[in-house]
Simulated scan of single mutants.
Amino acid sequence: MLVYLLAGVYFGVVLVKSEAASWYRIQEMFRFESFHMYGLIGSAVLTGMLTTVLLRRGNVRSRDGQAITVTPKEQGWQRYVLGGLTFGVGWGLSGLCPGPIYVLLGAGLWPILVVLAFALLGTYLYGVFKDRLPH
């Protein structure tokens, strides 16, 4: 567990130092005033794509020897549109994506507790209504 804790702390430091958790940087992105966040998001997308390709092509195993597989996504557009709209509305209202919530909390920005509470509420509500949502 220590390895995961250290990886999380490292990721948090990277988010703070790269200003990915900065409300001002996010506002610059939404106003098309700066390329900074688009570069960060683009590099994350490319890293995710490369990792997915490597996991699909390689015979990769977990630490305990189980095969790691990447299952194909389901077809259909409704779930992605609804999910994207929900994510976007939350991002627009709070001014940040959910990733830096714990980072900002760790940095001592206590008002982020409101965002955390609503993120947890949204997760709970998804669990309640998931059987009625398009998947």
Rank of each mutant, 00 (worst) to 15 (best):
M1T: 14
M1A: 14
L2T: 13
V3H: 12
V3G: 03
Y4S: 10
A7M: 15
G8D: 07
V9R: 09
V9A: 15
L15H: 03
K17W: 06
K17A: 07
A20M: 15
A20K: 01
A21G: 13
A21I: 01
S22A: 13
W23R: 06
M29I: 10
F32P: 00
F32G: 01
E33P: 04
E33F: 04
Y38E: 09
G39N: 07
G42Q: 04
G42A: 02
S43Y: 11
A44T: 09
V45I: 13
L46T: 08
G48K: 10
M49Q: 08
T52E: 12
V53K: 05
L54D: 04
L54S: 09
L54C: 10
V60F: 01
V60S: 02
D64E: 08
Q66M: 08
I68V: 09
V70Q: 01
G76P: 06
W77T: 12
Q78D: 04
R79E: 02
Y80N: 03
V81H: 03
G84L: 09
T86V: 10
F87S: 01
G90V: 04
G92S: 12
G92W: 14
L93F: 09
P98M: 05
G99R: 03
G99S: 11
P100H: 00
I101C: 03
L104V: 04
A107G: 12
L109A: 12
L109D: 13
I112A: 06
V114R: 12
V115S: 05
A117H: 02
F118P: 01
L120I: 07
L121W: 12
L121R: 07
T123N: 06
Y124W: 15
V128G: 01
F129P: 00
F129E: 02
F129C: 05
F129K: 11
K130G: 03
D131T: 14
R132L: 07
R132P: 00
R132G: 00
